[in-house]
Structures are given as structure tokens and as C-alpha cells.
Computed example of a mutant assay.
Amino acid sequence: MNATNDITVRPLGEDDWQDYRSVRLAALRESPEAFVATVEQEEAYDEDFWRERMQRSARLVAERAGDAVGVVSVGAAKGSENAAGELFGLWVRPEARGSGVATRLVKDGASLAAQRGHTHLVYWVGTENGRAVAFASGMGFRPTDYRRPMGVVSEEDGEEEIAMVLPLGSDNGPLLRL
């Protein structure tokens, strides 16, 4: 395994839409069950769609030796009146899992959310995904009472996601309302 110090994380701007498209499509191909969209749907989207998507949320890509090995997005959490950011679309190439890529992406995503003035960072995790819940807990996210149906097709009807929240900055304030 490579050490985390050979991983770089960089924000993608609107003009980097092709870089984001490439890693997003790789994620959809490799882990289709983890996303609401399908690779076929997103392959059909034109440049204008991708550029607009780049403006809606921040996109961070993790690279090792110039190759994209992971991605995450950071936006404003719905219904939080901009108090909370939301971390979503976290994906790491299978060969890079366990090497610190996800940790770097989440840390950089949390830093970006704090820079944008968010007091908390929300991360929705499948309640049945023990590895993801453990990872989020290890990063300092704490579970809330908020649940929602899984946005992706699962073999088990009724599977849920839990909102896990990471306080940002020195004034963590009360837990947010979603």
C-alpha cells in the first residue's frame, strides 16, 4: 500500500468538468449500487450539463502520480439554511481503498465546508453498511436520529440511510435540523 503522503487532493473548477466526468463515470461503472444515477444516463449528458453540475457543488479529486484515485463532493445540506454542508459522492478506486484516500478526501472536504462557513458537515450512510458507518465514526461523524430511505436500489426494500454529522470549527453549536 502507498502512504497517504503521495496522495494529492485538488478542487475541480468548471473547466475541469472532463476530469470530474471521467472519475464519476469510473465510479458508476465500478460501484453502480452506490449511486442513484447509472453510467448510461451520465454518459449521455452533454458538456453544458457537466459544467452546470460543477457549479452546484464543490468537487475534490484525489490523485496519485497524476491518476485520479478518488472523488468527493461538498455542497450545502438541504433545509439547513446553509449552516450545514453535505459530503456526498465519496468513491475510491478499489486498488486504492485502505490507503488513506478516503480519509484525505473527507478531511479536505470538511476543511472546505468550514472555509465556506458551514458549522457542521452531514454525511448520509447506509445503516446496513457497517464499514462506512465505522469509517465515518472514526472520522468524528456522530449518528443522528435522522433517517431516510436509501436513494439507490437495494436488494432489501426499506433499507435506510442515517445522517451522520461532523461538527466543524470551534463553535460546534447545537445539532442541526435537517
Rank of each mutant, 00 (worst) to 15 (best):
E33T: 12
Y45T: 04
F35W: 09
A27R: 09
D19K: 09
V122C: 10
T8V: 10
S99D: 04
G66C: 03
D108T: 05
R53C: 00
K78Y: 14
V92K: 05
A3Q: 09
K107S: 08
G75R: 13
A114K: 07
G66P: 02
P11D: 01
L112K: 06
A37C: 01
R116H: 14
D15Y: 12
G100P: 03
G79T: 13
T4M: 14
D19R: 06
E63T: 13
A96M: 02
V101L: 01
K78C: 10
V74F: 02
L12Y: 03
V101C: 06
R29Q: 08
D6R: 15
Y20K: 06
A34K: 14
V72C: 15
T103N: 08
L60T: 06
R10P: 00
E86W: 11
E40V: 10
S57N: 11
P94R: 15
E52R: 15
F88Y: 10
R97L: 04
T103I: 00
A83K: 10
V122G: 08
E86L: 06
E52N: 15
E42S: 08
E42L: 04
E43G: 03
F35V: 02
G75K: 11
E95D: 13
R53H: 00
L112W: 04
Y45A: 03
E14D: 07
E14G: 11
A102K: 02
T103M: 01
W17K: 05
A114M: 10
V23I: 11
G117W: 09
T8I: 09
R104W: 02
S80M: 11
A58C: 07
S73H: 15
W91C: 01
V74L: 06
R116G: 12
R21G: 02
N82W: 12
R51T: 00
A37P: 04
D48F: 08
N5F: 09
H120Y: 11
E52W: 11
L25E: 00
E86S: 15
E52T: 12
F35L: 01
R24G: 00
A37V: 06
A3M: 04
Y123Q: 07
D6S: 14
F49P: 01
G79L: 13
L112R: 03
R116V: 08
G79M: 11
E52L: 13
A102S: 03
V36M: 09
N5I: 05
N82I: 07
V122W: 13
R10I: 03
E63F: 12
V122A: 11
D15G: 08
V101D: 06
R10D: 07
A76G: 11
D19W: 04
S22W: 11
Y123D: 08
V39Y: 07
A96H: 07
A102E: 01
T119N: 08
R64Q: 15
